[in-house]
Amino acid sequence: MTLLRIDGLSAAYGPVPALRNVGLSLGEGETLGVVGANGAGKSTLTLAIAGIVRPSSGDIFFDGMSLAGLLPETIARLGVALVPEGRHIFEGLTVEENLLIGLNGAVGRQARRDALERIYDAFPILRQRRTGFGTRLSGGEQQQLAIARALLMNPRLLILDEPSLGLAPIMVDKVYKILRDLRQQGVALLLVEQNPARIAEVADRTVVLANGAVRLSGASADVLSSDLLSRAYLGAEEHEVCA
């Protein structure tokens, strides 16, 4: 069952094209890696799915439904959660308040409390720091908070943009452990990384973007071991599919 399907998606910032005719799909419970050089269009792709960037052509279907023209908040409430690059922890809000923002779906005080407790069980550090400001956490803790509050949205598709950026290796380990757990639990993931080193740990399939277009796609192991990968990073022209 296809959860996310993107057809012929193009987008531009003014005259500068950011995405060209991108197509990809993601099944329920599947994990898709998206890699590519800086400026390849990875973040634009995530923002287009989330409804922030308006595509100039093409369409995005989530669970069979076109997302065209929907507001970001509507898309979020459909079950698409984006953890954007830079984490965007709300300044001036406590850790718990940051988490509460994600609790849109849960109805009733008890349901919200339970959901929060489950998250605290999964992220003990957040329980410990719940009354402190979210922006006072370390980078890795902030990333955990960003993922945790996205999970509170009960997403069917979780999009993570550069979750390991700027983190110490030990923290990267931690984040990838969480991602592997999520995958086990059957959450569909769209994982964007500039550095493809660890993507195979989580992603079933991987897509390589270059200059806003898909250059390479296929099973992660094949894509990442392909000698075409470095060419894609350098901006090679042709679109290759790894068998």
Binding site: A50, I52, L71, P72, E73, A76, R77, A81, L82, P84, H88, F90, I101, G102, N104, R149, A150, M153
Partner: peptide, 9 residues
């Protein structure tokens, strides 16, 4: 923007 991404209307 982040608030909207989290479903805040």
């Amino acid at each position: 923007r982040m608030a909207r991404l989290m479903g805040v209307k």
